[in-house]
Deep mutational scan, measured.
Amino acid sequence: SSRTRFTDYQLRVLQDFFDTNAYPKDDEIEQLSTVLNLPTRVIVVWFQNARQKARK
């Protein structure tokens, strides 16, 4: 499976959201998916990875 290449804009939006809320609800994931034009699955994985990094 090929890795998703995020744009600077997508990363900024995801990071800004994460800084406020590391555990987005389903409807928030749907909204991010629509706004960023990314599959919900990709967003879910991004947040999982971001939470892992934040824990270190």
Rank of each mutant, 00 (worst) to 15 (best):
S1M: 13
S1C: 14
S2F: 06
S2R: 09
S2L: 08
R3G: 15
T4K: 02
T4Q: 05
T4R: 02
R5H: 15
R5T: 15
R5W: 09
F6P: 01
T7F: 01
T7Q: 05
T7A: 08
D8W: 02
D8S: 04
Q10T: 07
Q10P: 02
L11F: 12
R12M: 02
V13Q: 13
V13R: 14
V13A: 12
L14Q: 00
L14N: 00
L14T: 00
L14E: 00
L14V: 06
Q15V: 09
Q15H: 07
Q15W: 04
Q15Y: 05
Q15T: 10
Q15M: 13
Q15P: 01
D16G: 14
F17Y: 07
F17C: 06
F17G: 06
F17V: 05
F18Q: 04
F18E: 02
F18R: 06
D19S: 08
D19I: 06
D19F: 08
T20G: 11
N21L: 02
N21G: 03
N21C: 15
A22N: 10
A22R: 12
Y23M: 13
Y23Q: 07
Y23G: 07
Y23W: 10
P24Q: 01
P24C: 02
P24A: 05
K25I: 10
D26C: 05
D26A: 12
D26N: 09
D26E: 07
D27Q: 14
D27E: 03
I29V: 07
I29D: 00
I29W: 04
I29A: 05
I29C: 11
I29G: 00
I29H: 02
E30D: 14
E30I: 06
Q31K: 13
Q31E: 11
L32H: 00
L32A: 02
S33C: 04
S33T: 12
S33Q: 08
S33R: 02
S33K: 01
V35R: 13
V35A: 11
L36E: 00
L36D: 00
L36R: 01
N37H: 05
N37C: 04
N37S: 09
L38Y: 03
L38W: 01
P39M: 01
T40V: 09
R41K: 13
R41E: 07
R41H: 07
V42Y: 07
I43S: 01
I43E: 01
I43N: 00
I43K: 00
V45Y: 08
V45Q: 06
V45S: 14
W46N: 00
W46C: 04
F47H: 02
Q48F: 02
N49G: 12
N49I: 08
A50W: 04
A50D: 02
A50V: 11
R51K: 13
R51A: 06
R51Y: 07
R51W: 07
Q52C: 03
K53Q: 08
K53P: 10
A54P: 10
A54D: 10
A54M: 12
R55L: 15
R55I: 15
